[in-house]
């Protein structure tokens, strides 16, 4: 077993990493860099999940987010201005309101975390967590699991219907002109 001080140190590195990179997502001037920072934040959270004994969830989170970030990068190139994203840009609105809302959310949730009285019933054997999860997935929680599966299937169908070549928004061939730099430019035209 790994000694506790080591686990503590690893947790603080991961937690600080997750928060700092999470913050950098909205402070960097390039979208691709933002996507990389977000991935770093998720990887650090994945590390904390492994430390908490939930190896499977941590690994699945990493697996999922790696693919997702790549798709994000491709979407950026398809539609966003400044796609390769090595030129500076800021695209922010209602900055102060958002900052206050974010801070308020943090304080409220942190207060709940600090003041809330959670029962102290730790999971017994972290090594068995994966097996237990598997039995739960295909046992008692089969219905939940299947519902999640059906939800994903309907999402796939819906996403293809919306974004498909002959989706409800018109032909795909129209979509290859880059967006105007000013929000109202096309209204004026």
């Amino acid at each position: 077993m790994i000694p506790t001080p080591l686990v503590d140190a690893a947790f603080f590195v991961f937690a600080a990493g997750a928060i700092v990179t999470g913050y950098r997502v909205f402070r960097t001037d390039s979208m691709v860099r933002a996507a990389f920072y977000l991935l770093a934040s998720f990887s650090a959270v994945g590390g904390i999940l492994v430390l908490l004994g939930s190896e499977f969830l941590g690994m699945v989170l990493l697996l999922m987010m790696a693919g997702e970030m790549l798709i994000m990068a491709i979407v950026m190139v398809m539609y966003m201005m400044n796609p390769a994203g090595l030129n500076p840009m800021t695209m922010v609105h209602q900055n102060r309101v958002a900052a206050v809302a974010g801070l308020a959310a943090f304080l409220a949730l942190a207060a709940v975390g600090l003041l809330g009285d959670f029962p102290d019933r730790p999971a017994p054997q972290p090594a068995l967590a994966t097996e237990e999860l598997g039995i739960e997935l295909l046992g008692d929680s089969m219905l939940v699991f299947q519902t999640a599966g059906v939800t994903l299937l309907s999402t796939m169908i819906g996403a293809v219907a919306i974004a498909g070549r002959r989706g409800r928004s018109g032909s795909a061939e129209d979509g290859s002109i880059e967006p105007a730099l000013q929000p109202d430019e096309e209204d004026a035209a």
């Binding site: 999470g22 904390i48 958002a98 959310a105 943090f106 409220a108 975390g113």
Partner: peptide, 11 residues
């Protein structure tokens, strides 16, 4: 830490 991530997300 979770609350901080959530707060940054809200922002």
């Amino acid at each position: 830490a979770a609350a901080a991530l959530f707060g940054i997300g809200v922002y």
